[in-house]
Write a protein that binds this DNA or RNA. Structure first.
Ligand SMILES: [Mn+2]
Ligand SMILES: [Mn+2]
Ligand SMILES: [Zn+2]
Ligand SMILES: [Zn+2]
Lengths: 140, 140
DNA sequence: CAACAGTTTAGAGTTATTCTAATCTACATT
DNA sequence: AATGTAGATTAGAATAACTCTAAACTGTTG
């Protein structure tokens, strides 16, 4: 568990994204962004558990609301993997490897995997994201 | 709605995959594989609705059971897209475009999109699948 | 036509997530 | 600093997509 970022830094982060620095958002932001380079993949449930353990008074609904607001603000990226959604603090373009045995999601080193031939969207539409998930499992 | 494949062909298809040709499986197979080249993406719910409309007596549990059995048999391929799973009658390797406005899933012409640099799995593990989903949406 | 493994089913249970509508709070304004 | 209000939080109900259970049914084999 990394040391939490200072309140001032966190407050500025929220303000910079037009998010009111409420007690709940401050607490969740500190958990999500403990220090500049620290990237992680977190589910709503896991974050709620962390917040609860840290005695932060935050409801599950607020965790969901906040994750989505942070995502809209560009602070997070949503990655859907079958029946679980991960919120990724690494918002730069990259792809994922999913360990199907453990459910663990790992970043693929950027630049390693390359995609060519992504179709151009019809006019009026745009490509929202290109998600590549490499699924791995232990051999039978 | 394409004409259904004959019962004999459907029966043989099931037998060839060690699946007893029950009334329910016959009905669902005819809906899924109406004729040789006809590919589609179907959700459990949509298939259940089709079967119900066709006055086939099939329960939702059986639809799920059957879709998974067909998938295990290699007749279908499961494609997960956020909170919805599509079963694809096209089991050959290919990727998808998701229209986020309508939820419609479309095949990407194979050969068009290319991937390089897929990581080699650690010894003892294997790559189960590499899923690429290009998400598109109407411009704001 | 047994006999039994395999199959189906209604309905309850689960899990992840969203919704509602009442309550609260950050902060701009006075 | 007190006030007004848009924005935020919350408990709990609701929804959606499955999965499970255990009892009833059926395709196949002998
Ligand atoms: Mn979401
Ligand atoms: Mn499945
Ligand atoms: Zn990531
Ligand atoms: Zn497809």
């Amino acid at each position: 568990m990394a040391k939490k970022q200072s309140s001032e830094v966190t407050r500025d982060l929220l303000r910079a994204h037009d998010l009111r620095p409420t007690r709940q958002r401050m607490a969740l932001a500190k958990l999500l962004f403990p220090k500049p380079g620290h990237k992680q993949h977190v589910t709503a449930d896991a974050l709620f558990a962390q917040a609860t353990k840290a005695k932060t008074g935050v409801s599950l609904a607020t965790v969901y609301n906040t994750l989505h607001q942070f995502t809209e603000a560009g602070l997070l990226r949503e990655v859907s993997v079958s029946s679980a959604t991960y919120f990724d603090t690494n918002t730069s373009p990259h792809h994922h490897v999913l360990d199907e045995d453990t459910g663990m999601l790992t970043d693929l080193k950027p630049g390693r995997l390359a995609l060519t031939g992504i179709p151009r969207p019809p006019r009026g539409s745009q490509v929202t994201s290109v998600d590549v998930i490499v699924r791995m499992r232990k051999k039978a």
